[in-house]
Simulated assay, not measured.
Amino acid sequence: MKKAVILIALTFVTVLAYGQENKVQKLNKETNLIEVTDYHDNGMISQEGTFNLKGQLHGEWISYDALGNKISQGSYENGYKSGKWFFWSNNTLKEVEYSKNEIASINGVKNSSRVADNH
């Protein structure tokens, strides 16, 4: 239960951080997606990802803390979380598999690296 509560809190980091005013948006004409980069007040990147033309989160999203450390990485498909997502907290990596926007599985791994391969 504690893991689920922590995971839900980490999931909301992506949504809450998106509400910032410090952002840059541009249309990528090759992918037909709107690329977005949000910034913390200190100028560091908060998160980066893409939206489809309907305004839905679509494609890879990465979130960073105010020091530039990666805290989450995963993909959306037409507004829904899909596939493997990775959440870092201190030296712990949580791997979460999403199916139809619902958590299918959670794995915790000790790891100091902030590199993830979700393929």
Score class of each variant (00 low, 15 high):
Ile45Ala: 15
Leu7Ile: 14
Lys81Leu: 00
Phe12Leu: 07
Gly79Gln: 09
Asn101Glu: 02
Ala9Leu: 10
Ser105Pro: 00
Val109Tyr: 15
Gly55Cys: 03
Glu30Val: 06
Asn42Met: 08
His119Phe: 01
Asn28Lys: 09
Ile8Glu: 14
Ile45Gln: 14
Asn22Trp: 04
Gly59Asp: 01
Tyr39Ala: 04
Ala104Asn: 11
Glu48Ala: 12
Glu97Trp: 05
Glu97Cys: 01
Tyr98Trp: 03
Asn90Trp: 07
Gln73Leu: 11
Val13Ala: 08
Lys100Arg: 13
Glu102Cys: 10
Gly55Asp: 03
Asn69Tyr: 10
Leu57Gly: 05
Gly74Leu: 00
Phe12Asp: 04
Lys23Tyr: 11
Asp117Ala: 11
Asn78Leu: 08
Lys2Ser: 05
Asn32Gln: 07
His40Thr: 02
Gly43His: 09
Ala104Lys: 15
Phe12Ser: 03
Glu102Ile: 09
Lys100Glu: 13
Gln20Leu: 13
His58Leu: 00
Lys94Ala: 12
Glu97Val: 08
Thr11His: 11
Leu33Gln: 13
Lys70Thr: 13
Phe12Met: 03
Lys29Ser: 12
Leu27Gln: 08
Leu33Tyr: 07
Asn101Arg: 02
Asn91Ser: 09
Glu48Ser: 15
Tyr64Thr: 03
Leu33Trp: 07
Ile34Leu: 11
Ile71Val: 15
Asn69Gln: 12
Glu60Leu: 07
Glu77Leu: 09
Asp65Phe: 10
Ile106Trp: 02
Asp38Met: 13
Tyr76Ile: 01
Asn22Gly: 13
Ile103Ser: 01
Ser112Pro: 15
Asn101Gly: 00
Asn111Val: 04
Tyr98Val: 01
Lys81Ile: 00
Leu16Trp: 04
Phe51Ala: 00
Ala9Gln: 13
Asn78Trp: 02
Lys100Gly: 12
Thr92Asp: 13
Leu93Thr: 11
Asn111Leu: 11
Asn22Met: 10
Val96Ser: 08
Lys29Ile: 11
Lys54Asn: 12
Met44Cys: 06
Leu16Asp: 06
Ser72Leu: 06
Phe12Ile: 00
Gly108Trp: 07
Leu16Met: 06
Phe87Thr: 07
Phe51Pro: 03
Glu102Phe: 12
His119Cys: 00
Ile71Pro: 13
Asn107Cys: 05
Ile103Phe: 01
Asp65Leu: 09
Gln47Asp: 05
Asn22Ala: 14
His58Ser: 04
Gly74Trp: 00
Phe87Cys: 05
Ile103Asp: 00
Ala116Val: 12
Asn78Ile: 03
Arg114His: 15
Lys94Val: 06
Lys81His: 04
Phe12His: 06
Phe86Lys: 01
Gly68Leu: 08
Leu16Phe: 10
Asn22Ile: 06
